[in-house]
Protein backbone atom coordinates (compact mmCIF):
# COMPACT_ATOMS: atom_id res chain seq x y z
CA UNK A 1 0.00 0.00 0.00
CA UNK A 2 1.44 3.32 -0.89
CA UNK A 3 0.47 6.59 0.59
CA UNK A 4 1.57 9.72 -1.15
CA UNK A 5 1.55 13.19 0.21
CA UNK A 6 2.21 16.30 -1.73
CA UNK A 7 1.69 20.00 -1.57
CA UNK A 8 1.43 22.08 -4.67
CA UNK A 9 3.89 24.92 -4.63
CA UNK A 10 4.73 27.77 -4.60
CA UNK A 11 3.45 29.05 -1.30
CA UNK A 12 3.54 32.58 0.01
CA UNK A 13 3.74 33.95 3.51
CA UNK A 14 0.30 33.65 5.20
CA UNK A 15 -1.81 36.72 4.57
CA UNK A 16 -3.73 38.68 7.16
CA UNK A 17 -7.10 37.30 6.08
CA UNK A 18 -5.96 33.78 6.84
CA UNK A 19 -5.77 34.73 10.50
CA UNK A 20 -9.53 34.98 10.48
CA UNK A 21 -9.66 31.23 9.92
CA UNK A 22 -7.05 30.62 12.60
CA UNK A 23 -7.51 27.43 14.58
CA UNK A 24 -6.60 29.18 17.85
CA UNK A 25 -9.63 31.38 18.23
CA UNK A 26 -13.35 30.98 18.72
CA UNK A 27 -16.01 31.20 16.08
CA UNK A 28 -17.15 34.61 14.88
CA UNK A 29 -20.44 34.43 16.79
CA UNK A 30 -18.79 33.53 20.08
CA UNK A 31 -16.24 36.31 19.66
CA UNK A 32 -18.98 38.79 18.93
CA UNK A 33 -21.09 37.77 21.93
CA UNK A 34 -18.16 37.85 24.36
CA UNK A 35 -16.89 41.18 23.09
CA UNK A 36 -20.33 42.76 23.33
CA UNK A 37 -20.82 41.33 26.79
CA UNK A 38 -17.50 42.76 28.00
CA UNK A 39 -18.16 46.19 26.50
CA UNK A 40 -21.74 46.44 27.77
CA UNK A 41 -20.67 45.31 31.24
CA UNK A 42 -17.84 47.85 31.41
CA UNK A 43 -20.04 50.61 30.04
CA UNK A 44 -22.77 49.94 32.61
CA UNK A 45 -20.56 49.36 35.62
CA UNK A 46 -17.63 51.68 35.03
CA UNK A 47 -18.39 54.31 32.43
CA UNK A 48 -21.94 55.15 33.43
CA UNK A 49 -20.96 56.24 36.99
CA UNK A 50 -18.25 58.46 35.55
CA UNK A 51 -20.71 59.96 33.12
CA UNK A 52 -23.18 60.53 35.98
CA UNK A 53 -20.65 62.64 37.86
CA UNK A 54 -20.44 65.16 35.05
CA UNK A 55 -24.13 64.98 34.18
CA UNK A 56 -25.18 65.68 37.76
CA UNK A 57 -22.58 68.42 38.19
CA UNK A 58 -23.99 70.26 35.20
CA UNK A 59 -27.62 69.43 35.95
CA UNK A 60 -28.44 73.08 36.76
CA UNK A 61 -26.12 74.64 34.20
CA UNK A 62 -22.69 76.19 34.28
CA UNK A 63 -23.63 78.94 36.71
CA UNK A 64 -24.52 76.51 39.49
CA UNK A 65 -21.49 74.40 38.60
CA UNK A 66 -19.03 77.25 38.92
CA UNK A 67 -20.71 78.58 42.06
CA UNK A 68 -19.57 75.44 43.88
CA UNK A 69 -15.97 76.57 43.50
CA UNK A 70 -16.54 80.10 44.72
CA UNK A 71 -17.30 78.90 48.19
CA UNK A 72 -14.45 79.51 50.66
CA UNK A 73 -14.82 75.98 52.07
CA UNK A 74 -14.35 74.46 48.61
CA UNK A 75 -11.29 76.60 47.99
CA UNK A 76 -9.75 75.65 51.31
CA UNK A 77 -10.46 71.97 50.55
CA UNK A 78 -8.64 72.33 47.23
CA UNK A 79 -5.76 74.05 49.00
CA UNK A 80 -5.54 71.33 51.66
CA UNK A 81 -5.66 68.52 49.11
CA UNK A 82 -2.86 70.10 47.11
CA UNK A 83 -0.82 70.66 50.28
CA UNK A 84 -1.23 67.08 51.45
CA UNK A 85 -0.28 65.70 48.02
CA UNK A 86 2.69 68.09 47.85
CA UNK A 87 4.05 66.54 51.03
CA UNK A 88 3.01 62.90 50.66
CA UNK A 89 4.04 62.37 47.03
CA UNK A 90 7.63 63.67 47.31
CA UNK A 91 8.04 61.77 50.57
CA UNK A 92 7.02 58.51 48.94
CA UNK A 93 9.07 59.33 45.86
CA UNK A 94 12.25 59.63 47.91
CA UNK A 95 11.34 56.59 49.96
CA UNK A 96 10.52 54.54 46.86
CA UNK A 97 13.78 55.38 45.09
CA UNK A 98 15.82 54.63 48.22
CA UNK A 99 14.00 51.36 48.86
CA UNK A 100 14.30 50.28 45.22
CA UNK A 101 18.02 51.09 45.21
CA UNK A 102 18.66 49.05 48.35
CA UNK A 103 16.46 46.15 47.26
CA UNK A 104 17.16 45.96 43.53
CA UNK A 105 20.88 46.67 43.43
CA UNK A 106 21.99 44.53 46.36
CA UNK A 107 21.58 40.96 47.58
CA UNK A 108 20.87 40.62 51.27
CA UNK A 109 19.09 38.36 53.71
CA UNK A 110 15.41 39.01 54.38
CA UNK A 111 14.80 40.82 51.11
CA UNK A 112 11.45 39.27 50.30
CA UNK A 113 10.20 39.95 53.83
CA UNK A 114 11.12 43.60 53.37
CA UNK A 115 9.19 43.73 50.08
CA UNK A 116 6.16 42.15 51.75
CA UNK A 117 6.28 44.69 54.56
CA UNK A 118 6.48 47.59 52.12
CA UNK A 119 3.41 46.19 50.35
CA UNK A 120 1.51 45.89 53.62
CA UNK A 121 -0.49 49.16 53.38
CA UNK A 122 -2.16 47.88 50.19
CA UNK A 123 -3.78 45.04 52.08
CA UNK A 124 -5.03 47.15 54.99
CA UNK A 125 -8.51 48.63 54.85
CA UNK A 126 -8.38 52.44 54.42
CA UNK A 127 -10.42 52.86 57.57
CA UNK A 128 -7.94 50.78 59.55
CA UNK A 129 -5.09 52.78 58.01
CA UNK A 130 -6.54 55.92 59.54
CA UNK A 131 -7.47 54.22 62.76
CA UNK A 132 -3.94 53.12 63.65
CA UNK A 133 -2.89 56.77 63.83
CA UNK A 134 -5.86 57.56 66.04
CA UNK A 135 -4.77 54.73 68.33
CA UNK A 136 -1.36 56.38 68.69
CA UNK A 137 -2.02 60.09 68.58
CA UNK A 138 -5.70 60.32 69.54
CA UNK A 139 -6.75 61.76 72.90
CA UNK A 140 -7.21 58.22 74.25
CA UNK A 141 -4.26 56.89 72.24
CA UNK A 142 -0.92 55.45 73.32
CA UNK A 143 0.95 58.77 73.13
CA UNK A 144 -2.12 61.01 73.09
CA UNK A 145 -1.51 62.43 76.53
CA UNK A 146 2.08 63.36 75.65
CA UNK A 147 1.08 65.29 72.55
CA UNK A 148 -1.80 67.10 74.27
CA UNK A 149 0.55 68.16 77.04
CA UNK A 150 2.90 69.71 74.50
CA UNK A 151 0.08 71.33 72.58
CA UNK A 152 0.73 69.36 69.43
CA UNK A 153 -2.40 68.42 67.52
CA UNK A 154 -2.01 65.56 65.08
CA UNK A 155 -5.38 63.85 64.91
CA UNK A 156 -8.19 66.08 63.60
CA UNK A 157 -5.47 68.25 62.09
CA UNK A 158 -3.35 68.46 58.97
CA UNK A 159 -0.41 66.30 60.24
CA UNK A 160 -2.76 63.35 60.79
CA UNK A 161 -4.17 63.73 57.28
CA UNK A 162 -0.66 63.83 55.83
CA UNK A 163 0.41 60.76 57.83
CA UNK A 164 -2.65 58.74 56.80
CA UNK A 165 -2.14 59.76 53.15
CA UNK A 166 1.53 58.75 53.24
CA UNK A 167 0.50 55.40 54.70
CA UNK A 168 -2.04 54.52 52.03
CA UNK A 169 0.25 55.61 49.19
CA UNK A 170 3.41 54.21 50.78
CA UNK A 171 4.05 51.26 48.40
CA UNK A 172 3.22 52.96 45.05
CA UNK A 173 6.66 54.16 43.93
CA UNK A 174 8.70 51.38 45.53
CA UNK A 175 6.52 48.66 44.06
CA UNK A 176 6.91 49.97 40.50
CA UNK A 177 10.63 50.71 40.77
CA UNK A 178 11.80 47.50 42.51
CA UNK A 179 10.91 45.09 39.67
CA UNK A 180 11.97 47.65 37.07
CA UNK A 181 15.40 48.15 38.61
CA UNK A 182 15.78 44.43 39.20
CA UNK A 183 15.17 43.81 35.50
CA UNK A 184 17.79 46.39 34.62
CA UNK A 185 20.45 44.83 36.84
CA UNK A 186 23.63 46.52 37.97
CA UNK A 187 25.84 46.38 34.88
CA UNK A 188 25.10 49.96 33.78
CA UNK A 189 26.08 51.33 37.17
CA UNK A 190 29.16 49.11 37.31
CA UNK A 191 30.21 50.39 33.88
CA UNK A 192 29.80 53.98 35.10
CA UNK A 193 31.88 53.25 38.21
CA UNK A 194 34.71 51.69 36.18
CA UNK A 195 34.71 54.85 34.06
CA UNK A 196 35.40 56.85 37.19
CA UNK A 197 31.94 58.18 38.10
CA UNK A 198 31.08 58.60 41.76
CA UNK A 199 28.15 56.60 43.10
CA UNK A 200 25.83 59.59 43.20
CA UNK A 201 26.95 60.73 39.77
CA UNK A 202 26.26 57.23 38.41
CA UNK A 203 22.78 57.35 39.94
CA UNK A 204 21.99 60.72 38.38
CA UNK A 205 23.42 60.02 34.93
CA UNK A 206 22.76 56.28 34.48
CA UNK A 207 20.09 54.98 36.84
CA UNK A 208 17.71 57.92 36.78
CA UNK A 209 17.41 58.08 32.96
CA UNK A 210 16.75 54.33 32.94
CA UNK A 211 13.86 54.58 35.36
CA UNK A 212 12.38 57.93 34.38
CA UNK A 213 9.20 56.60 32.77
CA UNK A 214 8.60 54.13 35.56
CA UNK A 215 9.13 56.94 38.04
CA UNK A 216 6.64 59.20 36.27
CA UNK A 217 4.15 56.35 36.03
CA UNK A 218 4.31 55.56 39.73
CA UNK A 219 4.25 59.20 40.84
CA UNK A 220 1.14 59.70 38.74
CA UNK A 221 -0.69 56.82 40.41
CA UNK A 222 0.61 57.81 43.84
CA UNK A 223 -0.68 61.35 43.32
CA UNK A 224 -4.11 60.18 42.16
CA UNK A 225 -4.52 58.07 45.26
CA UNK A 226 -3.12 60.80 47.57
CA UNK A 227 -5.60 63.39 46.30
CA UNK A 228 -8.51 60.97 46.22
CA UNK A 229 -8.05 59.06 49.48
CA UNK A 230 -11.23 59.05 51.51
CA UNK A 231 -11.51 56.33 54.16
CA UNK A 232 -8.21 56.81 55.96
CA UNK A 233 -8.38 60.58 55.82
CA UNK A 234 -11.99 60.59 56.95
CA UNK A 235 -11.03 58.81 60.17
CA UNK A 236 -8.23 61.20 61.15
CA UNK A 237 -9.62 64.47 59.83
CA UNK A 238 -12.48 65.29 62.21
CA UNK A 239 -14.32 66.95 59.30
CA UNK A 240 -13.71 70.51 60.41
CA UNK A 241 -15.01 72.68 57.56
CA UNK A 242 -12.48 75.03 56.09
CA UNK A 243 -9.69 73.50 58.18
CA UNK A 244 -9.35 69.73 57.86
CA UNK A 245 -11.55 68.95 54.88
CA UNK A 246 -9.87 67.58 51.80
CA UNK A 247 -11.71 67.49 48.47
CA UNK A 248 -13.16 63.97 48.91
CA UNK A 249 -14.35 64.85 52.42
CA UNK A 250 -15.88 68.06 51.13
CA UNK A 251 -17.75 65.99 48.53
CA UNK A 252 -19.13 63.82 51.31
CA UNK A 253 -20.32 66.77 53.38
CA UNK A 254 -22.02 68.45 50.43
CA UNK A 255 -23.67 65.18 49.42
CA UNK A 256 -24.95 64.51 52.92
CA UNK A 257 -26.39 68.03 52.97
CA UNK A 258 -28.33 67.17 49.80
CA UNK A 259 -26.36 69.83 47.95
CA UNK A 260 -25.99 67.45 44.98
CA UNK A 261 -24.95 69.92 42.31
CA UNK A 262 -22.11 71.26 44.44
CA UNK A 263 -21.13 67.76 45.57
CA UNK A 264 -20.91 66.51 41.99
CA UNK A 265 -19.22 69.69 40.84
CA UNK A 266 -16.42 69.15 43.34
CA UNK A 267 -16.46 65.44 42.49
CA UNK A 268 -16.08 66.30 38.80
CA UNK A 269 -12.80 67.96 39.65
CA UNK A 270 -11.55 64.70 41.14
CA UNK A 271 -13.05 62.70 38.27
CA UNK A 272 -11.19 64.97 35.85
CA UNK A 273 -8.00 64.23 37.73
CA UNK A 274 -8.76 60.50 37.42
CA UNK A 275 -9.33 60.84 33.67
CA UNK A 276 -6.06 62.72 33.16
CA UNK A 277 -4.29 60.10 35.26
CA UNK A 278 -5.78 57.29 33.18
CA UNK A 279 -4.91 59.04 29.94
CA UNK A 280 -1.28 59.69 30.84
CA UNK A 281 -0.99 56.21 32.33
CA UNK A 282 -2.32 54.63 29.15
CA UNK A 283 -0.01 56.70 26.98
CA UNK A 284 2.94 55.62 29.12
CA UNK A 285 1.85 52.00 28.84
CA UNK A 286 1.50 52.14 25.05
CA UNK A 287 4.59 54.18 24.34
CA UNK A 288 7.04 53.13 26.99
CA UNK A 289 5.87 49.64 27.91
CA UNK A 290 9.49 48.48 27.78
CA UNK A 291 10.54 51.10 30.31
CA UNK A 292 7.90 50.13 32.87
CA UNK A 293 8.03 47.17 35.20
CA UNK A 294 6.35 44.20 33.51
CA UNK A 295 2.88 43.60 34.86
CA UNK A 296 3.16 46.46 37.33
CA UNK A 297 -0.33 47.76 36.75
CA UNK A 298 -2.07 48.84 39.93
Amino acid sequence: MSEGLGASLPIDAPRAEDRVRSVVTEGRAVRWVLTSLAIVFLALFLVLPLFTVFAQALARGWGAYLAAFREPDALSAIRLTLTVAAIAVPFNLVFGVAAAWAIAKFEFAGKSLLITLIDLPFSVSPVVSGMIYVLIFGSQGLFGAFFIEHGIQIIFAVPGIVLATIFVTFPFVARELIPLMQEQGTTDEEAALTLGASGFHAFLTVTLPNIRWGLLYSVLLCNARAMGEFGAVSVVSGHIRGLTNTLPLHVEILYNEYNFVAAFAVASLLAGLALVTLLVKSILEWRYAGDLAAGARH
Binding site: L42, L46, V47, P49, L50, T52, V53, Q56, P126, L221, A224, M227, G228, E229, F230, G231, L247, P248, L249, V251, E252, Y255, A263, F264, A267, L270, A271, A274, L275, T277, L278, K281, R297, H298
Partner: peptide
Protein backbone atom coordinates in the same frame (compact mmCIF):
# COMPACT_ATOMS: atom_id res chain seq x y z
CA UNK B 1 -10.78 48.88 33.19
CA UNK B 2 -8.48 50.87 35.49
CA UNK B 3 -11.13 53.51 36.19
CA UNK B 4 -11.96 52.16 39.69
CA UNK B 5 -8.26 52.39 40.57
CA UNK B 6 -8.06 56.00 39.46
CA UNK B 7 -11.44 57.37 40.51
CA UNK B 8 -11.50 58.49 44.16
CA UNK B 9 -13.76 56.19 46.13
CA UNK B 10 -15.98 58.98 47.42
CA UNK B 11 -16.65 60.11 43.86
CA UNK B 12 -17.49 56.57 42.79
CA UNK B 13 -19.65 56.27 45.89
CA UNK B 14 -21.89 59.26 45.25
CA UNK B 15 -22.07 58.45 41.53
Amino acid sequence: VDLPFALPTAVAGIA
